[in-house]
Amino acid sequence: MPLGICLCLGLLVICFSGCSKNGDFTNPFASAGGGRSDRVPSGSPAQQVAQLEQWRRDSELEVKQLRQSVAGLTEKNQTLQTQIANAQRATQLQNQHLKSVSDRLAATTSELAQTQMQKQGSSQDAASLNELNQEKERQLAATRQSVQKLQQQLKESTEQLGTVQSQLTQSEARAQSAQQSVEHLTASSRQRGGATIRSNQNLKMVTLPTDKATIERDGNVIRIQLMAENFFNPQTAQIQDGEIVTLEQMGKKLAEAYPDQRIGLEGHANPNQDPKGVWRNGHHLSSAQAMAIYEFFLTRSVFRSDQMFIVGHGANHPVYSSATETGRRGNDRVEIVIYPDAVK
């Protein structure tokens, strides 16, 4: 063994010996887990050196192991630090995601609130629209009722128009009949037994001696109406006995006023009349009543036969509505028509 090493080992032995005697020296190679701090070299100096050498090697081995442990712990610590950093980053990402979710939740909550407000507004709008719709329905119902009333009025007006048109048609037919009679009389102006017909356009009105007959001017003719119930027995062409004097007085008055005029005796019947006995219909009865007046005037020389003619109109020319009893009685009549044509 070299001298220097031996000297060093000797010094170490002396130091350990002195320290052990003093009790103040702590083995620098002792470890808490191995219990080596209580060991003291024994034996000869060479043995003590050997023991110290062994302890040194053990210490170096422990140091090496400790360094390896430190290195492992350091590596583990770095791994843990890396994991911690990763966890921190993940936490940060989670926080960011959580913040994003919170923001989205807040936005969704706000949108939900707005939607609820809009829904509330929509409900109010729906209520307003429903009320408006109900009002329109009421207006539509009122309009329909008005339309129905107008349609009913139109129907009534149409019926009235039809009635008026019917009356107009009857009036036109009556006028045409009168015109035909005038034309007939004009055409017959040729000589008939020495008589000639000529026109007189200035017929005057007379006052009748009875209130059971009426007189009126109708264009260029004069009409005298004799209601059948006032002059004839019911459903007959027989003149009432009590009216013979009345007819004689009226015939005398007419003969004085119209001695040469053309005289038409026109019989009329009620449209609802249902004659009994020998009369087939109202037309037949009205013609018979006109003939009765003709015979009456002729036999009493009121008018000449060449002055008079007979027409039976039946129910073709009513002057009153047959819906009432008064109207029906008024339509049963004989009219004495004074024409402007004179027969000489």
Rank of each mutant, 00 (worst) to 15 (best):
G282D: 04
N270C: 10
D332E: 10
T214I: 04
I263Y: 04
V206S: 06
Q68V: 08
Q51I: 07
D38H: 05
S189N: 13
I84V: 06
T79D: 14
I14T: 09
T74K: 12
I310G: 08
S20L: 01
E256V: 06
L168M: 11
D341V: 02
T82G: 13
M227S: 09
T186W: 03
E335M: 00
L161V: 10
A50R: 05
S287D: 04
T26Y: 10
R192D: 11
F309W: 10
H283D: 13
S37W: 02
L129P: 01
R329Y: 02
K252G: 14
D241H: 00
Q118E: 13
A175R: 09
P45V: 07
N27V: 02
C19W: 09
A85V: 09
E137I: 06
G314S: 08
P45L: 05
L254G: 00
M250I: 02
S100A: 04
S199P: 14
Q120G: 08
F25C: 13
S20T: 10
Q88S: 13
M227P: 11
N272I: 04
D332T: 01
L7T: 03
P2Y: 08
T210Y: 04
Q201S: 11
N230Q: 14
L298V: 05
E295S: 11
L140P: 02
Q48I: 02
R144W: 01
P318S: 04
Q201Y: 11
D24H: 07
G10Q: 10
S305P: 10
L105I: 06
A213R: 00
E159H: 12
R333V: 00
L112I: 02
Q249E: 12
G33N: 07
S157V: 08
A237K: 00
G242M: 07
Q307Y: 01
Y339F: 13
W279M: 01
Q83S: 10
T207M: 01
N202R: 12
I215T: 00
S128T: 13
E111P: 06
Q118H: 09
A141L: 13
I84D: 11
T163R: 15
Q68A: 15
G264I: 00
N281E: 09
D260P: 00
L150W: 14
N200K: 09
K212C: 00
D103W: 04
S189K: 09
M1Y: 01
L132C: 03
K76W: 05
V343E: 03
C6R: 13
F297P: 03
D38G: 07
G72E: 11
T326E: 14
S59N: 06
K344Q: 14
Q240V: 05
N133H: 11
D332L: 04
